[in-house]
Design a protein around this nucleic acid. Structure first.
Length: 580
DNA sequence: GCCGTTTTCGGCCCGACTGTTTTCAGTCG
């Protein structure tokens, strides 16, 4: 059983406990445990015979460890079974409807026997809900609307889409006079690869308390709003046409830092921060860090002041997951995270020789314009026929053409000759060794190996990695971003072998379905792999995808030294696995 | 159910918005 599954089952147990009106602190323990499990880089299923290692995880105590062992061994656990016998598993879906919380779910169950979305809809339309306490027509309408939306769209939105939407909305809000800044907060600011909703924080002279009402009216009337959910004194919530929920908050300058900190989260990071504040005699809210005794404000204008007042170094948003960052900030041991400005090269790109859209020269000049010091041209091989992939003869010609451009641009940028070679069904590489020996960069890609049995897939990739000419394992997972992880092979074993052999592993910034997740990047670092971040550019404009890749590297706590793209061209060549 | 710079017991984060509540419960982030 994968960690994500264990985490989900623990979280669902917390939901059921809420419906059961259990002790809120017990419920929180289950939520904390679920979070902690999801953060782990090693699979807990391999630790069930060593409970001590489970107990070492913060948030996992004796009975939670026993729960995890039960889950791994039997697929369930006693408490979960007990609750499922008392209630229904379909209630977990009801909780996802807006406005439906555990109390309401418990109420309609005990009063009407309603436990799933279809019966809820029927009951609502028949007017049965109106007789219940705290139910009026508005509640009923909200539920029916919620059911409609739920069926229309489920799930999360990709960070690049959400970023574009945020920018569109921000531009419209800025049209109002007296707005200085519009900043995305929440999981978008933390760089999660998908976001559930959008939090925008707005500040400027127009957001001071005596005049904020006009801004609120302006935002609530934006033309791109599909459905207005709520409009308060300084907050507006609405849905976009695609279902994405947007929360916009207007804030005075004086408390902007506290608000930014608060709404950036994560929730678990904030909880930990608040507990720390209390121990120090403070209270932390979205308005300020204040003294508990006389409510005097200690810090509120910037995040930096707040973290410092709590005895911490500033914590970058990407690290705020309550995953050791607070302890590191206190000990002044936070890593100097990699930044976009550190990147000096991209070693995965395509040209018109295969399925790219620009020439070698154009790609090289595009990289030069980004300030890069090196670029590797890595077109496809013949096995991927639809990409017009290269055979040995064309590959050798291509190398000569790349060397030519490299000479033309001497002193300005290094252009390395490379190839993105397919790993064939038996684990062999798609070109002759004698051809591969001419290349600076050989990326082995897993494309065509999908949909094979786990063990076979693992064995074939391991065989490919053994080939001494293979120097980078290209976009090594077939996971789907929207559906969490979907490994098709034993990634941990492959990464371990890559580390032993000096094979670099790639984080693909341009293809979010083929990259390594932040958790797997952290695993790769722990195992000692050298990591490369590349855009897989098929045109110069694709180089612009790099920031999304950097964000994920930051979430994995990577420093410039961990990532070969920060090296000089000579250092990069030296870091490659030596030729036989 | 977890945890410990007072503690192995007694704590455990904070506030806004909504609806129908004439003083607050539930939901949400």
């Amino acid at each position: 059983m994968e960690n994500v599954t264990i985490a989900r089952l623990l979280d669902e147990t917390a939901d059921l406990l809420e419906i059961d009106a259990a002790d809120p602190f017990r419920i929180r323990s289950y939520r904390r445990a679920a979070e902690a499990v999801e953060q782990q880089t090693t699979q807990l299923a391999t630790l069930v015979d060593e409970p001590k290692q489970l107990l070492a995880i913060a948030g996992i105590g004796k009975s939670m460890a026993s729960n995890i062992v039960d889950l791994v061994k039997s697929g369930s656990m006693p408490l979960r079974e007990e609750l499922l016998a008392k209630y229904r598993s379909t209630m977990l879906e009801l909780l996802k409807l807006p406005g439906m919380g555990p109390k309401t779910v418990a109420l309609i169950w005990s009063a009407l026997g309603v436990a799933d979305i279809d019966s809820l809809e029927t009951a609502a339309k028949e007017g049965k809900l109106n007789d219940l306490p705290r139910f009026g027509q508005k509640q009923v309408d909200k539920i029916l609307k919620g059911i409609e939306d739920f069926r229309k769209n489920t799930g999360r939105y990709r960070i690049d889409d959400a970023t574009a939407t945020a920018e569109r909305i921000a531009a419209l809000i800025r049209e109002f006079p007296g707005i200085d800044t519009v900043t995305p907060a929440g999981s978008l600011r933390r760089g999660r690869e998908t976001v559930g909703d959008l939090d925008l924080l707005v500040t400027g002279p127009a957001c001071e308390p005596d005049c904020v009402a006009a801004v609120v009216d302006h935002v609530a009337a934006l033309p791109l709003i599909a459905n207005l959910i709520a409009k308060g004194q300084n907050k507006v919530s609405f849905n976009m046409r695609n279902g994405l929920q947007v929360d916009v908050r207007m804030l005075p300058k004086s408390s902007y830092g506290a608000a930014l900190q608060y709404f950036t989260g994560s929730k678990m990071h904030n909880v930990a921060l608040r507990q720390r504040a209390i121990k120090m005699g403070y209270t932390l809210s979205e308005y300020a860090l204040a003294r508990m005794d006389d409510s005097s404000i200690v810090a509120s204008a910037t995040e930096q002041e707040i973290y410092n007042a709590l005895g911490l170094d500033y914590i970058p948003p990407e690290l705020r997951e309550n995953n050791g960052e607070i302890e590191a900030a206190q000990a002044h041991t936070l890593p100097r995270l990699i930044e976009l400005a550190d990147i000096r090269g991209d070693v995965h790109s395509h040209t018109i020789a295969s399925d790219g859209r620009q020439t070698i020269r154009e790609m090289a000049e595009g990289a030069l314009a980004k300030g890069y010091k090196f670029l590797a041209i890595t077109d496809h091989t013949k096995n991927l026929a639809m990409t017009n992939g290269l055979d040995d003869a064309r590959a050798l010609e291509h190398i000569a053409a790349i060397r030519e451009v490299d000479r033309e641009l001497e002193g300005r940028i290094r252009v390395f000759a490379g190839i993105e070679v397919d790993i064939l069904g038996d684990g062999a590489l798609d070109l002759e060794d004698s051809t591969l020996a001419q290349m600076d960069v050989v990326i082995g890609s897993v494309h065509t190996l999908f949909n094979q049995p786990y063990e076979e897939m693992t064995a074939r990739i391991l065989r490919a990695v053994e080939n001494p000419y293979l120097r980078i394992l290209g976009h090594p997972t077939g996971r789907k971003v929207m559906a969490r992880e979907a490994y098709t092979f034993d990634l941990e074993r492959v990464l371990r072998r890559c580390a032993e052999l000096g094979v670099m592993v790639e984080h693909n910034a341009g293809m979010p379905r083929l990259d390594l997740s932040d958790r797997n990047l952290r695993l790769a670092k722990e195992l000692g792999c050298r990591i490369s971040v590349n855009t897989d550019a098929h045109a110069v404009s694709d180089f612009e995808q790099m920031p999304f890749g950097i964000t994920q590297l930051r979430r994995a706590w990577l420093t410039p030294a961990d990532v070969i793209n920060t090296y000089s061209p000579e250092e990069f060549l030296a870091a490659l696995r030596p030729r036989p």
